[in-house]
């Protein structure tokens, strides 16, 4: 299982869409396209704000109830960060195609599963945010997300960032947290069996990954080893910086 630990991203991979992004992290690869603001259909349009339409396509098979649930989670989160009031009666459409997901080598996985797939949510959200940035859709804030699993280890418990499918099988609880760039909690999804104290610890771990201040990322990156996991906010920023530098290279 060659799973990359560092996230990778490419912007504007699709030539005809308004914005697009390809993102891969922890074995998940997602491609997103964003079109908008475009004219909304009469039955969908809202008089005061833009409609955000999210479509999730699974890696294999047709979408089912699980994809509808993912769409509703992403839709409500993304409408919070996009300035939807600036575009009344219009539509911003985000299409997310899952390209690959990590396989659990120990068991036969079924193609169609109905239960909620937690670790895919950060990948989908991150790709959507990158594609929205690439489409230059005005946003109030960007968002970063991470997934943390609490895995039993003997008598104690251990927190695993970006858990593997094997970790997920034995995990006591799985948590997805997303933060805006103003350090506000945007999305929190958890399942399993846990206490308030454990949730607090998970919150701190996720916050450290999602909301590391930009200054420390520059200076003590090398010595900051105890903070496990990638620095998502820095990643988002450096991806955009690279893209802008490439675009303005002719100047």
């Amino acid at each position: 299982m060659a799973i990359s630990t560092e996230p990778e991203a490419a912007l504007s991979v699709l030539p005809r869409a308004d914005g697009s992004a390809k993102y891969s992290h922890a074995g998940y690869t997602v491609t997103a396209s964003v079109n908008g603001p475009i004219e909304a259909q009469r039955r969908d349009e809202h008089a005061y704000e833009a409609v955000v339409d999210v479509i999730v396509r699974p890696a294999a098979g047709a979408g089912g109830t699980r994809e509808r649930h993912l769409e509703s989670i992403l839709q409500s989160s993304l409408s919070q960060i996009i300035l939807i009031k600036n575009f009344p009666r219009s539509l911003i459409q985000i299409v997310l195609q899952i390209e690959s997901t990590p396989e659990n080598d120990y068991v036969n996985t079924k193609l169609v599963q109905a239960s909620l797939n937690f670790p895919i949510i950060p990948a989908l959200l991150q790709t959507a945010v990158l594609a929205l940035l690439s489409a230059a859709v005005p946003m109030r804030a960007t968002a970063t997300a991470s997934v943390v699993a609490v895995v039993p280890e003997g008598q104690t418990k251990r927190m695993v960032v970006d858990p593997s499918p094997r970790d997920l099988d034995i995990a006591k609880s799985v948590h997805v947290l997303a933060f805006t760039s103003h350090d506000e909690l945007l999305l929190a999804e958890s399942e399993g069996d846990f206490t308030v104290k454990e949730w607090d610890d998970v919150y701190e771990t996720a916050q450290r990954i999602c909301c590391r201040p930009a200054t420390t990322a520059e200076t003590d990156m090398a010595i900051d080893d105890e903070a496990a996991g990638p620095d998502m906010r820095h990643f988002l920023r450096s991806t955009m910086e690279t893209k802008i530098a490439a675009d303005l290279h002719w100047k």
Partner: peptide
């Protein structure tokens, strides 16, 4: 004994943060 949380779903806004979540238990 201690309260076990089985599932949390919070979405669609940024008002509820860590403190409100604790209080909601």
């Amino acid at each position: 004994g201690e309260t076990r949380i089985r599932s949390v779903e919070k979405l669609g806004g940024t008002v509820i943060g860590r403190e409100l979540m604790r209080g909601f238990v």
